[in-house]
Structure formats: C-alpha cells, structure tokens
Amino acid sequence: MPRYYFDTRDNERFIPDETGVEIATLDEVKLAASRAMADFAKDVLPGSVVRTLAIEVRGKFGPVLLVSLRFEIEHATARN
C-alpha cells in the first residue's frame, strides 16, 4: 500500500510530515486530506483575523494533492 505524507503550512510556517500514513486509493487520500484540513482549521482559526492554511500531500514520487483554505474576517462599514 502506498505511503502518503501530509505536510502542513500555516501562513509561512511549513511543517513536514516525517511519518506518513499508508492509504490504498487516491479517493481515500482526498478524504483524509479534507478531514485533516477540517481538524487543522478547527484548532488554529479561532482568534485569527487572516490565515492561510494548506495541506500538501506527497507520495513516493512527489506532490499528489494540495488542500488550501484562506480565512479572513472583514469588518463591515455602517451604512445609513
């Protein structure tokens, strides 16, 4: 079974996955990356104003998938 590595990026901070996980199909990789992004965002977004998160999935031969999320809070101006 192929091994995939889920490297994370939080704004400019890059954290490589040194362990990886074995996953059978690309569809399962997409599902795992989506779930990982949801968990990642849940942990770091509260209290943020602007944040760009990414999970870069790589396999034995290089990049396979990129999941990214941009979060931004903008204050609305009062309209009369």
Rank of each mutant, 00 (worst) to 15 (best):
P2Y: 06
R3L: 05
Y4H: 05
Y4C: 04
Y5L: 09
F6Y: 09
D7S: 09
R9N: 06
D10C: 12
N11A: 14
E12L: 13
E12G: 14
F14G: 03
I15H: 13
I15F: 13
I15S: 15
I15N: 14
P16I: 07
D17P: 01
T19S: 15
T19N: 15
G20W: 04
V21W: 07
E22Q: 13
I23F: 07
A24S: 12
A24H: 10
E28C: 00
E28K: 09
V29N: 02
K30Q: 09
L31F: 05
L31C: 01
L31K: 14
A33D: 03
S34C: 08
R35H: 06
A36K: 08
A38L: 10
F40Q: 05
F40A: 05
K42C: 01
K42L: 02
K42F: 04
K42D: 14
K42Y: 05
V44S: 06
V44K: 10
V44E: 06
L45Q: 07
V49Y: 07
V49M: 04
R51N: 04
T52D: 09
T52E: 08
T52G: 00
L53T: 02
L53M: 05
A54C: 02
I55G: 00
I55Y: 00
E56T: 07
E56N: 13
E56H: 11
V57F: 04
R58W: 00
R58C: 03
R58E: 06
G59F: 01
K60I: 01
F61N: 13
G62N: 05
G62F: 05
P63Y: 02
P63N: 07
V64Y: 04
L65N: 01
V67H: 11
S68G: 10
S68V: 03
R70L: 09
R70Q: 11
F71D: 15
E72D: 11
E74M: 08
A76F: 07
R79N: 11
N80V: 08
